[in-house]
Design a protein around this nucleic acid. Structure first.
Lengths: 347, 347
DNA sequence: GTGAAAGCGCTAACAG
DNA sequence: CTGTTAGCGCTTTCAC
């Protein structure tokens, strides 16, 4: 169980450390004979360089920028700061420097401005949430041209420039919501999918959840529940929802595809609608309180904190230990109710 | 954003690297004057030693032994091997050597024998599942006397010799099961808690789950569901269960406190009992199939793989990076149904 | 008490 | 093409 060093290999192959290093790093300038001898040995003993020593030499400070929507404008993003802080704490003594940047989730302009600012800083990598599709693709291109690694999380875009995505399978999470709904509403009752958006930049996000939700109920078509959709901008929510519910008296369940389930609850309570089951997303404090009192039945947890922490960790370990960055990491779709809530909040 | 080294500090304090090192490690033999100067500087710049360099010198191989029940006797433990392999893979190039040892979950003797064998190997740390309470306490003492760090996972014991526990809040997981059950069985129907055990070594485990389950239903006492208990050894399960169900015709839900829900299903199916909802534990392949076909409604995931991986990781990072080992880590209580199952299996 | 020096494993520059 | 050498930051030994 000995662990071999480059020195050992040099001795065994009858060459110097320098030559072994050249073989390992394919720097050329090695005779065929030496190359073969060393290669053979490396394979035989399954040589793994000591990551500590490798890094020690390379005394560089790695700069990573995290770009996400301002949590003050949408508290969904708050846990990301905790995830970032955890990574900052954990890696600071390794010479990793993580900086946070916020853009306004309602402004493509602000998204572009912030990213241009980051671009000028020339960090080693950027982790961002690509809320705006088109702009994100172009931003990613710019980063790549500048030799900056780009990872994304939470929202997915299709771009070769992006090395890694951390998030959730949204279609499937729609199915999960549907099954839970199916379980808690009466047979043959009506349920409605409510999309609430400020600027429709979440369109893709919400569509996938809707598809999954419908897909599930589609398997029971004819015999079972009836699914409708209400798609509104946030400022019209009150009026539209009331109207909808008045003309659809049999609604027994609402699936809110964003983290704004608590807004729907407000309206239901003000207008004295009872016996409507609710399923939504994300452990915002407003949602948590309603979950605890069982006014919301289930929340699906998208783990923004873990997403952020993982996205950053992949980048750091790539720099520090030359680990491969997973191109796609789909987190579990956590079902949260009032009883297991605490166990998620602790983590 | 410069990162300071002991060389910098030595220069600033007008002393040598050696003196700085002595101050940092409180090795004494430093004049008050030098001590004060260096201490002040260390605090001012919040000095963090470079963990890579620190470890490089210390070219030691760390031996960690993992002791758990033989997965061939109880497949619940299978994922632990995956978790262990992940840790082995990840840390092997850091000079960490993790070895696995199995004992028979039905034999205290085998538990003791295996641990004695491990003790003789004098590893740096042991991670074990203390299935047998009394024996585990004594085993932990022996390890500690030999200067071996002991961590435990999955099962908890009360022992000062144990530095870390990774697992789940079982009482709370019982409550989670109860709430789910409450949601899927008719009002005022009867539910039963089934404990299945080979040797009653899981007694504490199962009791806590039962307490949580009862606690939840207790909050609805009088108006609601009636909870009974069936406690059997595995070999008597068939007969006892049939008998119980025949004399309790109104049972509409069964909560199985171990990973053996599939055994209960077998019996129900053979005897043509219908419309009984099932909630159990753990993603064993037998359970997974029944979950997929919705014969089991929910499984609570105890994440044995993650438990193992985390338990090992804490030890490794303690040795390698002098990180503190968390004395207690409670994992989320994951609710798994047929729709979010896939997202857990991938992870 | 203290400083100087060697060395952990790896990299990279330099001389041959 | 190849070997030697210096040095990353820290620890430890040794001599003063």
């Amino acid at each position: 169980m000995k662990t071999y060093t480059i020195k050992d290999i040099a001795k065994l192959a009858g060459v110097s450390k320098g030559t072994v290093d050249r073989v390992i790093h394919k720097r050329g300038k090695v005779s065929q004979k030496a190359f073969d001898a060393v290669t053979k040995l490396l394979e035989e003993i399954d040589y793994q360089p000591n990551p500590m020593a490798r890094n020690l030499k390379n005394n560089k400070i790695y700069d990573i920028c995290l770009v996400l929507p301002n949590p003050e404008e949408d508290s969904f993003w708050e846990p990301c700061i905790l995830g970032a802080n955890q990574a900052i704490e954990e890696f600071k003594s390794f010479g990793v420097n993580i900086k946070l940047f916020f853009y306004s989730p309602t402004s493509t302009k602000s998204f572009q401005d912030v990213n241009n600012k980051v671009l000028k800083l020339k960090p080693d990598a950027v982790l961002l949430t690509p809320l705006f599709y088109k702009e994100s693709v172009s931003v990613a291109k710019n980063y790549q041209l500048a030799g900056i690694i780009v990872s994304i999380f939470n929202n997915q875009i299709d771009s070769k420039q992006v090395v890694s995505f951390v998030g959730q399978n949204l279609f499937q999470s729609g199915r999960v919501a549907a099954q839970l709904m199916h379980m808690i509403v009466p047979e043959k009752s009506e349920v409605v999918i409510v999309h609430i958006d400020e600027t429709f930049n979440n369109a893709i996000h919400m569509q996938q959840k809707e598809k999954g939700f419908r897909d599930y109920f589609g398997e029971f078509r004819g015999t079972n529940n009836n699914v409708s959709v209400l798609s509104v901008k946030q400022e019209n929510l009150y009026q539209s929802l009331i109207e909808f519910l008045k003309s659809n008296q049999n609604i027994s369940g609402i699936f809110v595809t964003t983290s704004k389930a608590y807004k729907v609850v407000e309206i239901l309570q003000q207008n004295n609608f009872k016996n409507i089951k609710l399923i939504g997303y994300d452990l915002l404090t407003e949602n948590i309180d309603l979950l605890k009192s069982n006014i919301i039945s289930f929340l699906i947890h998208q783990s923004p904190k873990t997403q952020t922490y993982l996205g950053l960790t992949y980048l750091v370990e790539h720099f520090l230990f030359k680990k491969e960055i997973p191109s796609k990491k789909l987190l579990p779709i956590d079902i949260v109710n009032s009883e297991n809530l605490g166990s998620y909040l602790e983590n």
